[in-house]
Nucleic acid binder design. Structure first.
Lengths: 169, 169
DNA sequence: TTGGAATGTCAACAAGGCTGACTTAAAATC
DNA sequence: GATTTTAAGTCAGCCTTGTTGACATTCCAA
């Protein structure tokens, strides 16, 4: 593939984008992701936590009572890797793991007050930047942004994403 | 901040986005970035390289003859970290480091034929997914996508990005 | 000529991924 | 009721990729 978009006869939804233009999108993702994580990273560093802790806290906040295996499938890491992070969060009183009522093998995860406070400070920082970016880009841009990102996901991850965010996108 | 957008009197460029909606954008970034790196990661794994090598190869391709310190500032890592990666690429004949003509302290970095081949296979994979996402999202979405990403970058990184991509966005 | 910049390198360390092996408890199934 | 499967946790060890700190070399520029 050298310049797919300039080849005629590629179907009705053809976009006339050169490889160079697509490449710019790739670099935009790279640089933007750095910005995306910069604010939480600064907060986490002070507390001796990392991005892995952030992700766990985020999704526990998002789905209170979620099980360990559910979290594993969302985060896409091994249980050993998640366990290291989760143990730290539990030991330090940010997360509570309750034994399941129906199925006692399961652990249901909840943020404690302290955990919720950390989550709030992390997501406030991240949302502030996000909101500023939306404002700078304008109302029309937001929808396109989300559409492209969604289309970029692996189908499996897209399902997870849609399940999480369903109800009033 | 609980719901900035619903508070009246926030200025003329106000976007009526709830915290929940902004949060979905955050999750979209998270899941999309996984997809974004998935294809190159698969290729790299076979060759015993990692994302760090990919980034170096990408930006050397992008700016042939770039110096080590310029690459450092783009990648935002320490020279020790970059050096490890660069040494591997040079030792294995993917990158060539030429001593500067004017300033002999500088090393100018170039991809060899083998390096260019790897770069091509990585970026083909990544561009294919990107192009598919653009196609799925539609023409209008692409501009919004880029605008939001650009607005999300740290100002310093945005300058780097714009310098790289200037001339026909 | 001397100070500082660009580069490279050594050593040591940490976070956060991974695999593999194994245990425990409880649910599910035969 | 016995067996198998599932959910979770744990131990050990490995890899990549980031970090600091110290130090050497080379060479431009004031």
């Amino acid at each position: 593939m050298t310049n797919g978009a300039s080849t005629p006869g590629m179907g009705e939804t053809l976009l006339f984008l050169t490889d160079e233009q697509v490449r710019k999108g790739i670099e935009a993702m790279f640089f933007a992701y750095r910005g995306f994580t910069a604010d939480p990273d600064r907060i986490l560093e002070k507390m001796d936590y990392g991005r892995a802790h952030h992700r766990a806290v985020h999704f526990i906040h998002r789905s209170p009572g979620t099980t360990v295996s559910n979290l594993l499938s969302i985060l896409g890491v091994t249980k050993q890797s998640l366990n290291r992070v989760l143990r730290a969060l539990i030991d330090e009183g940010l997360v509570e793991a309750r034994v399941g009522r129906r199925d006692k093998r399961e652990r249901h995860l909840y943020l404690t007050a302290a955990g919720a406070e950390l989550e709030r400070s992390l997501s406030d920082a991240q949302r502030t930047r996000m909101r500023a970016a939306y404002r700078a880009a304008g109302p029309g841009a937001v929808q396109g942004f989300r559409q492209v990102l969604e289309a970029m996901m692996d189908p499996e991850l897209r399902k997870q994403y849609q399940k999480l965010t369903e109800g009033g996108a």
